[in-house]
Design a protein around this nucleic acid. Sequence first.
DNA 1: TCTGCTCGTTCGACTTGACGAACGCCTCCA
DNA 2: TGGAGGCGTTCGTCAAGTCGAACGAGCAGA
Lengths: 203, 203
Amino acid sequence: MADVAGDGAAADAVTGSGRAGGPNPIELIAVSIRRERERTGLSMTELAKRAGIAKSTLSQLESGTGNPSVETLWALGVALDVPFSRLVDPPRPVVKVIRAGEGPVTHSERADYSATLLASCPPNARRDIYRIEAQPGEARTSDPHNPGTTEHLLLSAGRALVGPAEDPVELAPGDYIAYPGDTPHIFRALAPDTAAVIVMEHT
Amino acid sequence: MADVAGDGAAADAVTGSGRAGGPNPIELIAVSIRRERERTGLSMTELAKRAGIAKSTLSQLESGTGNPSVETLWALGVALDVPFSRLVDPPRPVVKVIRAGEGPVTHSERADYSATLLASCPPNARRDIYRIEAQPGEARTSDPHNPGTTEHLLLSAGRALVGPAEDPVELAPGDYIAYPGDTPHIFRALAPDTAAVIVMEHT
DNA sequence: TCTGCTCGTTCGACTTGACGAACGCCTCCA
DNA sequence: TGGAGGCGTTCGTCAAGTCGAACGAGCAGA
Protein backbone atom coordinates (compact mmCIF):
# COMPACT_ATOMS: atom_id res chain seq x y z
CA MET A 1 0.00 0.00 0.00
CA ALA A 2 0.92 2.95 -0.59
CA ASP A 3 1.85 5.64 0.98
CA VAL A 4 2.00 8.99 1.77
CA ALA A 5 3.61 11.13 -0.36
CA GLY A 6 4.58 14.28 0.16
CA ASP A 7 4.96 16.48 2.80
CA GLY A 8 4.51 16.36 6.31
CA ALA A 9 5.97 19.66 6.29
CA ALA A 10 3.67 21.92 4.52
CA ALA A 11 0.79 22.86 6.54
CA ASP A 12 2.05 25.53 8.65
CA ALA A 13 3.85 28.22 6.90
CA VAL A 14 2.59 29.93 9.78
CA THR A 15 5.04 32.56 9.82
CA GLY A 16 3.03 34.59 7.55
CA SER A 17 0.21 36.32 9.17
CA GLY A 18 -2.16 34.00 10.79
CA ARG A 19 -3.49 37.03 12.37
CA ALA A 20 -2.52 40.34 11.07
CA GLY A 21 0.33 40.58 13.43
CA GLY A 22 3.64 40.30 11.92
CA PRO A 23 5.50 41.67 9.06
CA ASN A 24 5.49 44.50 6.67
CA PRO A 25 2.40 44.52 4.49
CA ILE A 26 4.11 46.58 1.84
CA GLU A 27 6.79 43.99 1.28
CA LEU A 28 4.15 41.33 1.14
CA ILE A 29 2.16 43.21 -1.41
CA ALA A 30 5.18 43.95 -3.50
CA VAL A 31 6.07 40.30 -3.93
CA SER A 32 2.44 39.26 -4.28
CA ILE A 33 1.80 41.68 -7.07
CA ARG A 34 4.88 40.64 -8.90
CA ARG A 35 4.16 36.97 -8.39
CA GLU A 36 0.61 37.20 -9.63
CA ARG A 37 1.54 39.42 -12.51
CA GLU A 38 4.24 37.08 -13.71
CA ARG A 39 1.90 34.18 -13.24
CA THR A 40 -0.44 35.69 -15.78
CA GLY A 41 2.42 36.71 -18.00
CA LEU A 42 1.44 40.35 -18.19
CA SER A 43 3.89 43.19 -18.45
CA MET A 44 3.75 46.11 -16.07
CA THR A 45 2.56 48.31 -18.87
CA GLU A 46 -0.21 45.93 -19.80
CA LEU A 47 -1.34 45.26 -16.26
CA ALA A 48 -1.37 48.92 -15.39
CA LYS A 49 -3.50 49.62 -18.42
CA ARG A 50 -5.99 46.89 -17.54
CA ALA A 51 -6.19 47.96 -13.94
CA GLY A 52 -6.60 51.57 -14.92
CA ILE A 53 -3.67 52.80 -12.91
CA ALA A 54 -0.47 54.50 -13.93
CA LYS A 55 2.34 52.16 -14.64
CA SER A 56 4.56 54.35 -12.54
CA THR A 57 2.34 53.51 -9.60
CA LEU A 58 2.64 49.85 -10.35
CA SER A 59 6.38 50.14 -10.65
CA GLN A 60 6.63 51.74 -7.25
CA LEU A 61 4.37 49.11 -5.78
CA GLU A 62 6.44 46.21 -7.00
CA SER A 63 9.59 47.88 -5.81
CA GLY A 64 8.20 48.04 -2.32
CA THR A 65 8.02 51.79 -2.34
CA GLY A 66 4.78 53.37 -1.40
CA ASN A 67 1.68 52.42 0.39
CA PRO A 68 -1.14 51.79 -2.01
CA SER A 69 -4.70 52.76 -1.40
CA VAL A 70 -7.40 50.17 -1.26
CA GLU A 71 -8.83 51.24 -4.57
CA THR A 72 -5.51 50.78 -6.26
CA LEU A 73 -5.04 47.35 -4.80
CA TRP A 74 -8.59 46.39 -5.61
CA ALA A 75 -8.15 47.44 -9.21
CA LEU A 76 -5.08 45.25 -9.41
CA GLY A 77 -6.93 42.36 -7.85
CA VAL A 78 -9.65 42.64 -10.44
CA ALA A 79 -7.21 42.95 -13.30
CA LEU A 80 -5.29 39.92 -12.09
CA ASP A 81 -8.48 38.05 -11.32
CA VAL A 82 -7.37 37.04 -7.89
CA PRO A 83 -9.22 37.52 -4.64
CA PHE A 84 -8.16 40.62 -2.86
CA SER A 85 -6.72 38.78 0.06
CA ARG A 86 -4.32 36.88 -2.15
CA LEU A 87 -2.43 40.12 -2.51
CA VAL A 88 -2.05 40.80 1.16
CA ASP A 89 -1.60 37.36 2.62
CA PRO A 90 1.59 35.37 2.42
CA PRO A 91 2.24 32.94 -0.39
CA ARG A 92 1.63 29.30 -0.22
CA PRO A 93 3.37 25.99 -0.06
CA VAL A 94 2.80 23.02 -2.24
CA VAL A 95 0.73 20.06 -2.96
CA LYS A 96 0.65 17.12 -0.71
CA VAL A 97 -0.67 13.65 -0.91
CA ILE A 98 -1.52 11.51 2.04
CA ARG A 99 -2.99 8.07 1.81
CA ALA A 100 -4.95 6.88 4.75
CA GLY A 101 -6.23 3.77 6.14
CA GLU A 102 -4.46 5.16 8.99
CA GLY A 103 -2.80 8.35 9.86
CA PRO A 104 -2.26 10.66 12.78
CA VAL A 105 -5.18 9.62 14.93
CA THR A 106 -6.17 11.63 17.92
CA HIS A 107 -8.18 9.33 20.08
CA SER A 108 -10.73 10.79 22.33
CA GLU A 109 -10.57 10.57 26.06
CA ARG A 110 -13.33 8.10 25.49
CA ALA A 111 -12.51 5.09 23.41
CA ASP A 112 -15.57 5.27 21.24
CA TYR A 113 -14.50 8.28 19.27
CA SER A 114 -11.55 8.98 17.06
CA ALA A 115 -10.57 11.74 14.73
CA THR A 116 -7.95 11.53 12.04
CA LEU A 117 -6.35 14.56 10.51
CA LEU A 118 -6.28 13.77 6.84
CA ALA A 119 -5.09 16.97 5.33
CA SER A 120 -3.97 20.18 6.87
CA CYS A 121 -4.83 23.09 4.70
CA PRO A 122 -2.10 25.11 3.08
CA PRO A 123 -2.54 28.82 3.53
CA ASN A 124 -4.49 30.55 0.89
CA ALA A 125 -5.93 27.42 -0.62
CA ARG A 126 -9.58 27.29 -1.48
CA ARG A 127 -11.35 24.06 -0.80
CA ASP A 128 -14.75 23.25 -2.18
CA ILE A 129 -16.62 20.31 -0.76
CA TYR A 130 -18.55 17.85 -2.90
CA ARG A 131 -20.54 14.73 -2.35
CA ILE A 132 -20.19 12.03 -4.95
CA GLU A 133 -22.53 9.16 -5.66
CA ALA A 134 -21.82 6.67 -8.37
CA GLN A 135 -22.71 3.27 -9.71
CA PRO A 136 -20.38 0.69 -11.21
CA GLY A 137 -19.62 1.25 -14.82
CA GLU A 138 -16.91 2.69 -16.90
CA ALA A 139 -14.22 4.68 -15.25
CA ARG A 140 -15.03 8.33 -15.15
CA THR A 141 -11.98 10.13 -16.38
CA SER A 142 -11.82 13.75 -15.45
CA ASP A 143 -10.12 16.29 -17.53
CA PRO A 144 -7.36 17.98 -15.57
CA HIS A 145 -8.42 21.10 -13.78
CA ASN A 146 -6.45 24.22 -13.25
CA PRO A 147 -2.81 23.93 -12.27
CA GLY A 148 -2.30 23.69 -8.56
CA THR A 149 -5.48 21.77 -7.95
CA THR A 150 -5.55 18.92 -5.47
CA GLU A 151 -8.42 16.56 -4.92
CA HIS A 152 -9.06 14.95 -1.56
CA LEU A 153 -11.40 12.01 -1.58
CA LEU A 154 -12.77 9.96 1.26
CA LEU A 155 -14.86 6.97 0.44
CA SER A 156 -18.07 6.74 2.44
CA ALA A 157 -19.65 3.61 1.01
CA GLY A 158 -19.07 0.98 -1.64
CA ARG A 159 -15.74 0.51 -3.32
CA ALA A 160 -13.96 2.53 -5.92
CA LEU A 161 -10.86 2.82 -8.02
CA VAL A 162 -9.53 6.32 -7.67
CA GLY A 163 -6.51 8.41 -8.42
CA PRO A 164 -4.16 9.32 -11.24
CA ALA A 165 -5.32 7.75 -14.47
CA GLU A 166 -2.17 5.73 -14.92
CA ASP A 167 -1.99 4.53 -11.34
CA PRO A 168 -5.32 4.44 -9.54
CA VAL A 169 -5.89 2.97 -6.11
CA GLU A 170 -8.71 0.80 -4.89
CA LEU A 171 -10.47 2.23 -1.89
CA ALA A 172 -12.75 0.78 0.74
CA PRO A 173 -15.07 2.75 2.99
CA GLY A 174 -13.09 5.05 5.25
CA ASP A 175 -10.10 5.20 2.94
CA TYR A 176 -8.75 8.57 2.03
CA ILE A 177 -6.73 9.60 -0.97
CA ALA A 178 -5.41 12.86 -2.26
CA TYR A 179 -3.99 13.34 -5.71
CA PRO A 180 -3.17 16.09 -8.15
CA GLY A 181 -6.22 17.43 -9.88
CA ASP A 182 -4.28 19.00 -12.69
CA THR A 183 -3.34 15.71 -14.24
CA PRO A 184 -5.72 13.13 -15.69
CA HIS A 185 -7.44 11.12 -12.99
CA ILE A 186 -10.30 8.71 -12.68
CA PHE A 187 -13.12 7.72 -10.40
CA ARG A 188 -14.57 4.29 -10.99
CA ALA A 189 -17.21 2.81 -8.75
CA LEU A 190 -16.70 -0.90 -8.12
CA ALA A 191 -19.82 -1.49 -6.06
CA PRO A 192 -23.40 -0.26 -6.22
CA ASP A 193 -24.25 2.95 -4.41
CA THR A 194 -20.69 4.00 -3.99
CA ALA A 195 -20.46 7.34 -2.20
CA ALA A 196 -17.60 9.66 -1.41
CA VAL A 197 -16.70 13.10 -0.26
CA ILE A 198 -14.43 15.09 -2.47
CA VAL A 199 -12.70 18.21 -1.31
CA MET A 200 -11.37 20.04 -4.29
CA GLU A 201 -8.55 22.32 -3.39
CA HIS A 202 -7.39 25.00 -5.75
CA THR A 203 -4.78 27.57 -5.17
CA MET B 1 -36.53 17.71 5.51
CA ALA B 2 -34.92 19.92 6.86
CA ASP B 3 -32.51 22.24 6.22
CA VAL B 4 -31.32 25.31 7.35
CA ALA B 5 -31.37 26.03 10.88
CA GLY B 6 -30.98 29.10 12.60
CA ASP B 7 -30.28 32.42 11.53
CA GLY B 8 -31.86 34.23 8.85
CA ALA B 9 -30.18 37.15 10.30
CA ALA B 10 -26.81 36.88 8.83
CA ALA B 11 -28.13 37.61 5.51
CA ASP B 12 -26.67 39.17 2.61
CA ALA B 13 -23.09 39.22 2.02
CA VAL B 14 -23.80 36.91 -0.73
CA THR B 15 -22.73 39.15 -3.37
CA GLY B 16 -19.46 39.01 -1.76
CA SER B 17 -16.34 38.70 -3.70
CA GLY B 18 -15.56 35.25 -4.71
CA ARG B 19 -13.00 36.74 -6.88
CA ALA B 20 -12.25 40.34 -6.53
CA GLY B 21 -14.81 41.23 -9.05
CA GLY B 22 -17.82 42.79 -7.71
CA PRO B 23 -18.69 45.57 -5.46
CA ASN B 24 -17.20 48.57 -3.86
CA PRO B 25 -14.30 47.74 -1.60
CA ILE B 26 -14.72 50.94 0.34
CA GLU B 27 -18.26 50.03 1.37
CA LEU B 28 -17.10 46.60 2.33
CA ILE B 29 -14.32 47.94 4.46
CA ALA B 30 -16.56 50.47 6.09
CA VAL B 31 -18.99 47.87 7.36
CA SER B 32 -16.23 45.42 8.19
CA ILE B 33 -14.38 47.90 10.33
CA ARG B 34 -17.50 48.86 12.16
CA ARG B 35 -18.56 45.28 12.61
CA GLU B 36 -15.22 44.18 14.02
CA ARG B 37 -14.87 47.25 16.16
CA GLU B 38 -18.27 46.78 17.72
CA ARG B 39 -17.56 43.12 18.17
CA THR B 40 -14.63 43.98 20.39
CA GLY B 41 -16.58 46.72 22.11
CA LEU B 42 -14.04 49.43 21.41
CA SER B 43 -14.92 53.05 20.79
CA MET B 44 -13.60 54.88 17.77
CA THR B 45 -11.38 56.92 20.00
CA GLU B 46 -9.95 53.87 21.69
CA LEU B 47 -9.44 51.87 18.51
CA ALA B 48 -7.80 54.77 16.75
CA LYS B 49 -5.43 55.18 19.65
CA ARG B 50 -4.51 51.52 19.66
CA ALA B 51 -4.04 51.39 15.93
CA GLY B 52 -1.98 54.54 16.00
CA ILE B 53 -4.14 56.41 13.55
CA ALA B 54 -6.15 59.59 13.90
CA LYS B 55 -9.68 59.03 14.99
CA SER B 56 -10.78 61.37 12.26
CA THR B 57 -9.36 58.92 9.79
CA LEU B 58 -11.23 56.11 11.40
CA SER B 59 -14.42 58.12 11.35
CA GLN B 60 -14.10 58.75 7.65
CA LEU B 61 -13.38 55.10 7.04
CA GLU B 62 -16.46 53.86 8.82
CA SER B 63 -18.58 56.44 7.07
CA GLY B 64 -17.47 55.06 3.73
CA THR B 65 -15.62 58.24 2.86
CA GLY B 66 -12.06 57.87 1.81
CA ASN B 67 -9.83 55.25 0.46
CA PRO B 68 -7.47 54.02 3.12
CA SER B 69 -3.91 53.05 2.49
CA VAL B 70 -2.71 49.57 3.16
CA GLU B 71 -0.75 50.65 6.18
CA THR B 72 -3.80 52.20 7.73
CA LEU B 73 -5.87 49.11 7.15
CA TRP B 74 -3.10 46.89 8.38
CA ALA B 75 -2.81 48.88 11.58
CA LEU B 76 -6.50 48.44 12.14
CA GLY B 77 -6.26 44.74 11.49
CA VAL B 78 -3.56 44.41 14.09
CA ALA B 79 -5.43 46.51 16.62
CA LEU B 80 -8.58 44.49 16.10
CA ASP B 81 -6.62 41.25 16.06
CA VAL B 82 -8.27 40.00 12.93
CA PRO B 83 -6.64 38.74 9.77
CA PHE B 84 -6.32 41.40 7.18
CA SER B 85 -8.63 39.71 4.81
CA ARG B 86 -11.48 39.79 7.29
CA LEU B 87 -11.61 43.50 6.67
CA VAL B 88 -11.89 43.27 2.94
CA ASP B 89 -13.93 40.14 2.50
CA PRO B 90 -17.59 39.75 3.37
CA PRO B 91 -18.87 37.96 6.46
CA ARG B 92 -20.07 34.42 6.57
CA PRO B 93 -23.17 32.36 7.14
CA VAL B 94 -24.31 29.84 9.68
CA VAL B 95 -25.85 26.45 9.95
CA LYS B 96 -26.72 24.70 6.73
CA VAL B 97 -27.97 21.19 6.22
CA ILE B 98 -28.08 19.41 2.91
CA ARG B 99 -29.83 16.07 3.09
CA ALA B 100 -28.70 13.11 1.10
CA GLY B 101 -30.28 13.47 -2.28
CA GLU B 102 -30.72 17.19 -1.95
CA GLY B 103 -28.56 20.04 -3.02
CA PRO B 104 -27.32 21.44 -6.30
CA VAL B 105 -26.51 18.22 -8.10
CA THR B 106 -24.49 18.21 -11.25
CA HIS B 107 -25.33 14.95 -12.91
CA SER B 108 -22.83 13.38 -15.13
CA GLU B 109 -23.38 12.80 -18.78
CA ARG B 110 -23.78 9.26 -17.64
CA ALA B 111 -26.57 8.61 -15.22
CA ASP B 112 -24.53 6.59 -12.78
CA TYR B 113 -22.55 9.45 -11.35
CA SER B 114 -23.51 12.59 -9.55
CA ALA B 115 -21.65 15.32 -7.70
CA THR B 116 -23.15 17.75 -5.24
CA LEU B 117 -21.45 20.99 -4.35
CA LEU B 118 -21.83 21.21 -0.61
CA ALA B 119 -19.76 24.23 0.27
CA SER B 120 -17.87 26.65 -1.86
CA CYS B 121 -14.78 27.92 -0.21
CA PRO B 122 -14.73 31.51 1.00
CA PRO B 123 -11.64 33.47 0.16
CA ASN B 124 -8.73 32.86 2.42
CA ALA B 125 -10.28 30.13 4.47
CA ARG B 126 -8.21 27.21 5.59
CA ARG B 127 -9.92 23.90 5.59
CA ASP B 128 -8.54 20.90 7.39
CA ILE B 129 -9.99 17.52 6.66
CA TYR B 130 -10.73 14.93 9.33
CA ARG B 131 -12.24 11.52 9.46
CA ILE B 132 -14.41 10.75 12.44
CA GLU B 133 -15.37 7.36 13.80
CA ALA B 134 -17.57 7.03 16.83
CA GLN B 135 -19.76 4.68 18.78
CA PRO B 136 -23.05 5.46 20.48
CA GLY B 137 -22.65 6.99 23.86
CA GLU B 138 -22.71 10.32 25.46
CA ALA B 139 -22.73 13.33 23.27
CA ARG B 140 -19.29 14.62 22.60
CA THR B 141 -19.39 18.31 23.28
CA SER B 142 -16.60 20.26 21.74
CA ASP B 143 -15.30 23.40 23.23
CA PRO B 144 -15.64 26.25 20.82
CA HIS B 145 -12.63 26.79 18.63
CA ASN B 146 -11.19 30.01 17.42
CA PRO B 147 -13.53 32.71 16.23
CA GLY B 148 -14.30 32.45 12.58
CA THR B 149 -14.30 28.67 12.53
CA THR B 150 -16.87 26.71 10.59
CA GLU B 151 -17.25 22.96 10.65
CA HIS B 152 -18.52 21.01 7.68
CA LEU B 153 -19.62 17.47 8.39
CA LEU B 154 -20.80 14.79 6.05
CA LEU B 155 -22.04 11.57 7.56
CA SER B 156 -20.64 8.46 5.90
CA ALA B 157 -22.20 5.72 7.95
CA GLY B 158 -24.44 5.22 10.94
CA ARG B 159 -26.53 7.96 12.42
CA ALA B 160 -25.59 10.98 14.46
CA LEU B 161 -26.89 14.03 16.23
CA VAL B 162 -24.77 16.95 15.18
CA GLY B 163 -24.67 20.69 15.33
CA PRO B 164 -24.97 23.57 17.76
CA ALA B 165 -25.26 22.25 21.30
CA GLU B 166 -28.63 23.83 21.85
CA ASP B 167 -30.09 22.80 18.53
CA PRO B 168 -28.48 19.73 17.00
CA VAL B 169 -29.73 17.94 13.91
CA GLU B 170 -30.07 14.23 13.32
CA LEU B 171 -28.18 13.05 10.28
CA ALA B 172 -28.35 9.95 8.14
CA PRO B 173 -25.64 8.70 5.78
CA GLY B 174 -25.03 11.21 3.01
CA ASP B 175 -26.40 14.13 4.98
CA TYR B 176 -24.31 17.26 5.17
CA ILE B 177 -24.29 19.96 7.81
CA ALA B 178 -22.26 23.09 8.37
CA TYR B 179 -22.31 25.04 11.60
CA PRO B 180 -20.23 27.58 13.50
CA GLY B 181 -17.27 26.03 15.20
CA ASP B 182 -16.78 28.93 17.55
CA THR B 183 -19.86 28.16 19.59
CA PRO B 184 -20.50 25.02 21.62
CA HIS B 185 -21.45 22.09 19.44
CA ILE B 186 -21.86 18.36 19.76
CA PHE B 187 -21.33 15.13 17.91
CA ARG B 188 -23.29 12.18 19.20
CA ALA B 189 -23.28 8.84 17.46
CA LEU B 190 -26.68 7.15 17.45
CA ALA B 191 -25.65 3.94 15.76
CA PRO B 192 -22.62 1.65 15.97
CA ASP B 193 -19.67 2.39 13.72
CA THR B 194 -20.82 5.85 12.88
CA ALA B 195 -18.37 7.56 10.55
CA ALA B 196 -18.11 11.03 9.16
CA VAL B 197 -15.90 13.46 7.35
CA ILE B 198 -15.30 16.77 9.01
CA VAL B 199 -13.81 19.68 7.21
CA MET B 200 -12.79 22.30 9.70
CA GLU B 201 -12.61 25.72 8.18
CA HIS B 202 -10.88 28.58 9.91
CA THR B 203 -10.27 32.04 8.73
C1' DT C 1 23.27 51.15 -38.45
C1' DC C 2 19.06 53.15 -37.80
C1' DT C 3 14.29 53.09 -37.00
C1' DG C 4 10.38 51.76 -34.36
C1' DC C 5 8.58 49.26 -30.84
C1' DT C 6 7.98 47.70 -25.79
C1' DC C 7 9.94 47.15 -21.61
C1' DG C 8 10.49 49.19 -16.64
C1' DT C 9 12.15 53.28 -14.15
C1' DT C 10 12.45 58.23 -12.73
C1' DC C 11 10.76 63.01 -12.27
C1' DG C 12 7.60 67.15 -11.43
C1' DA C 13 2.60 68.58 -10.87
C1' DC C 14 -1.63 67.60 -8.95
C1' DT C 15 -4.84 65.22 -6.11
C1' DT C 16 -5.97 63.18 -1.87
C1' DG C 17 -5.44 60.70 2.42
C1' DA C 18 -3.81 61.27 7.28
C1' DC C 19 -3.38 64.21 10.97
C1' DG C 20 -4.63 67.23 15.03
C1' DA C 21 -7.65 70.70 16.85
C1' DA C 22 -12.03 72.33 17.51
C1' DC C 23 -16.92 71.45 17.61
C1' DG C 24 -21.57 69.63 19.18
C1' DC C 25 -23.61 66.04 21.75
C1' DC C 26 -24.29 63.13 25.51
C1' DT C 27 -23.78 61.20 30.46
C1' DC C 28 -22.24 61.45 35.07
C1' DC C 29 -21.64 63.65 39.41
C1' DA C 30 -20.56 67.39 42.59
C1' DT D 1 -26.89 73.77 37.47
C1' DG D 2 -22.65 73.58 35.70
C1' DG D 3 -18.40 71.45 34.95
C1' DA D 4 -15.71 67.40 33.51
C1' DG D 5 -15.01 63.64 30.48
C1' DG D 6 -16.41 60.59 27.14
C1' DC D 7 -18.29 59.98 22.38
C1' DG D 8 -18.20 60.75 16.98
C1' DT D 9 -17.94 64.36 13.39
C1' DT D 10 -16.04 68.36 10.76
C1' DC D 11 -12.40 71.49 9.12
C1' DG D 12 -7.79 73.31 7.56
C1' DT D 13 -2.96 71.92 6.97
C1' DC D 14 0.67 68.99 5.49
C1' DA D 15 2.59 64.91 3.72
C1' DA D 16 2.17 61.29 0.43
C1' DG D 17 0.01 58.60 -3.23
C1' DT D 18 -1.25 58.91 -8.06
C1' DC D 19 -0.68 60.53 -12.48
C1' DG D 20 1.36 61.56 -17.13
C1' DA D 21 5.48 62.48 -19.56
C1' DA D 22 10.12 61.80 -20.42
C1' DC D 23 14.02 58.73 -20.09
C1' DG D 24 17.42 54.81 -20.95
C1' DA D 25 17.68 49.90 -22.11
C1' DG D 26 16.71 45.97 -24.95
C1' DC D 27 15.12 43.82 -29.27
C1' DA D 28 13.40 42.93 -34.20
C1' DG D 29 13.64 44.05 -38.86
C1' DA D 30 14.66 47.05 -42.87
